[in-house]
């Protein structure tokens, strides 16, 4: 198990799932403490802005992210529900690893 954005091991055992992408985005947004702009999230998550927007919209629709305008620019923050998703995501990843142990790969 590594960073959510880089979960495939050398053997290719685990494919990057949509939930991994969502977790990656939320973790990057969290770092910016309510000031995450789309370009910063794009660099942090390693995703092009156009693809990222689709995921951001979905996360916001699900109540995992919220946006606001700050000095004319849209900035994002993780909601308590988003934080709950992250906690459960990592916990579930850990259980999956325990049941099906694969080499732990760090990016």
């Amino acid at each position: 198990m590594g960073a959510p954005s880089d979960t495939a091991s050398a053997s290719g055992a685990r494919r990057r799932e949509q939930t991994d992408l969502y977790a990656t985005i939320l973790e990057v947004v969290k770092r910016h403490r309510g000031q995450a702009r789309i370009t910063r999230i794009s660099y942090g998550a390693g995703m092009p802005v156009d693809r990222l927007r689709v995921s951001i919209d979905r996360l916001a629709a699900l109540g995992l992210l919220r946006s606001r305008t700050d000095e004319g620019r849209t900035v994002y923050d993780v909601t308590p529900r988003g934080q709950e998703f992250l906690t459960l995501y990592w916990r579930m990843r850990a259980y999956t690893e325990m049941l099906d142990p694969a080499p732990v790969v760090l990016r």
Binding site: V29, I41, A45, R107
Partner: peptide, 25 residues
Amino acid sequence: VQVGGTLQVRGLLKGRELSVGGSAQ
């Protein structure tokens, strides 16, 4: 030190807080 994606520091990292969104070595 606040990094959205990945961080690598090969020498001593000295400071108060480090926050990384992705991974750090």
